Amino acid sequence: MRLSTKAQYAVRAMVSLNLYADGAPMSLKAIAAREDISLTYLEQLFVKLRRGKIVDSVRGPGGGYVLARPADRIRVDEIIDSVEETLVPVSCMDQDGRCSCVDQCVTHSVWQGLGGRIRQFLSSINLEDLTKEAKAKAGSGV
């Protein structure tokens, strides 16, 4: 299973927002430059993140985006879900783990179990965890 750049960029942008904004609004232009992500692509992602109640937008001079709630209450699976990335391991399953095949295949339970473990793992990591890891890497010169 491979997550798209949509999911990867959304998570990276959220870590950057939490790490460098220090609670103040941060412009997408600043995030785009810092993370080397296209500004237009980030704009599309942040519309979805705002709809998903992950970020809030602040208008006006000095505006930008802020976290909608504390970083330790934003899970990685929520970020990925907000940008409409699927966490199921095979294409024949929907987001709830139901099989779209007319007759359930004999390997369905394997894929369903794998999907559950992926979601469980990603829901166990919050934005604050990733931010602390990023700070540690920055401090060690990596």
Rank of each mutant, 00 (worst) to 15 (best):
R12C: 10
A13R: 04
L17T: 10
N18I: 02
D22P: 00
A24R: 15
P25W: 08
K29G: 01
I31T: 10
I31C: 06
I31E: 03
R34L: 12
E35N: 14
L39E: 03
L42D: 02
Q44M: 02
Q44R: 14
F46S: 10
F46L: 04
K48N: 10
K48F: 04
L49F: 04
R51Q: 13
G52W: 07
G52S: 05
K53W: 02
V55P: 04
D56S: 12
G62S: 06
G62I: 02
G63K: 13
Y65Q: 08
L67W: 03
A71C: 04
A71S: 14
A71I: 05
D72A: 13
D77I: 03
E85A: 12
V88E: 11
P89N: 02
V90N: 04
S91F: 09
C92N: 01
C92G: 00
M93F: 14
D94V: 07
D94C: 02
D96T: 11
R98V: 09
V102D: 01
S109T: 15
G113I: 01
G115F: 00
G115M: 03
G116E: 06
R117E: 15
Q120N: 15
F121M: 11
I125F: 01
N126W: 11
N126A: 10
L127E: 07
L127G: 08
E128K: 12
D129L: 03
L130H: 09
E133G: 02
A134N: 05
K135H: 12
K135T: 08
A136W: 09
S140E: 14
V142R: 12
V142M: 12
V142G: 09
V142L: 15
